[in-house]
């Protein structure tokens, strides 16, 4: 069951004041190149369209993120295009800018310069980032980021507060989702009574509860042992395939990135020439 988020986004866009009812015409033609001017990285399996890029769900253009008045440069000119339904692993050493990139794509942070487009609509035109996140993006973190005082079910339901739908319908959805993730006997358990794998599955359920188009996973297996790590990854890839989800996953673990359709390597705030170059 995939919700046509395109329509939702268009509605949301139209609701923004001063834009009229029509969504803007196509964005200026976008040529996918890395900042280094080299050809697309290895593993880029779909055909490039240099005039337009209709399949791209997310495009980042010349993203820079500076802290401390420019002394620290988390991102330094990142160009990236992600096709809808793609499972992309962003790899690179700690501090290379993976998390910053995910935060910007997730609208948790605004870039210092550059622009991100979601289905050709620029982020700078998003009036209500919270609503955008709720409708289009699900987050999964290394540290799970569950609320310790809420049980598994409530940790999932907390993401539905403020969304349309009845309480019973939301409850049913959350139960289904948790059951699908093998947590039907863990609904009333609190995070501290669950294993790491279980916790991450609760987090996945929370990320999926509002049927997003895009999952941003920041080191989702970083806190798990290899068995749990593999299980969570399998779950994630299965759901991604089943729902046609787009997944962007930051990781520094090659065994994890190997599950991705494509690997984007980063180093020093930039896209590295090829993923193999990354350690």
């Amino acid at each position: 069951m995939i919700i046509h988020t395109n329509d939702r986004f268009a509605r949301h866009w139209a609701a923004c004041p001063g834009r009229g009812s029509a969504a803007p015409a196509s964005i200026a033609p976008f040529r996918f190149t890395s900042r280094t001017g080299l050809p697309p990285p290895h593993g880029f399996r779909y055909k490039m369209n240099t005039e337009s890029f209709p399949e791209a769900i997310v495009r980042a253009r010349a993203l820079a993120l500076h802290f401390d008045d420019g002394d620290t440069q988390a991102l330094n000119g990142v160009d990236l295009a992600i096709r809808a339904g793609e499972f992309v692993a962003v790899v690179g050493p700690s501090g290379c800018g993976k998390s910053s990139l995910l935060n910007i794509i997730g609208t948790l942070e605004a870039p210092t310069t550059g622009e991100v487009f979601f289905r050709a609509q620029p982020y700078s035109g998003i009036r209500d980032p919270s609503r955008f996140r709720r409708q289009h993006i699900g987050f999964i973190f290394q540290s799970f980021n569950l609320i310790p005082t809420l049980c598994a079910l409530d940790n999932v339901l907390v993401a539905t507060i403020g969304t349309p739908g009845t309480a019973s319908e939301k409850m049913a959805r959350a139960r289904d989702l948790l059951a699908k993730l093998g947590l039907e006997n863990r609904l009333a358990h609190f995070p501290n009574k669950m294993s790491g794998g279980e916790r991450q599955r609760v987090a996945i359920a929370r990320a999926l509860i509002n049927s997003p188009d895009l999952i941003l996973a920041d080191e989702p297996t970083g806190s798990l042992d290899s068995a749990n790590s593999a299980a969570v990854l399998t779950l994630l890839t299965d759901i991604q395939k089943e729902r046609g989800l787009t997944v962007i996953m930051a990781t520094h673990d090659p065994s994890v990135s190997a599950r991705a359709d494509r690997i984007v390597a980063m180093r020093d705030g930039q896209i590295a020439p090829s993923p193999e170059a990354a350690p």
């Binding site: 919270s130 609503r131 996140r133 987050f139 569950l146 507060i161 403020g162």
Partner: peptide
């Protein structure tokens, strides 16, 4: 603070 960060991340609006 972190908890509120989580709520904002999962799409809670500031007014919520």
């Amino acid at each position: 603070t972190r908890e509120i960060g989580i709520l904002l991340t999962v799409g809670w609006q500031r007014r919520t």
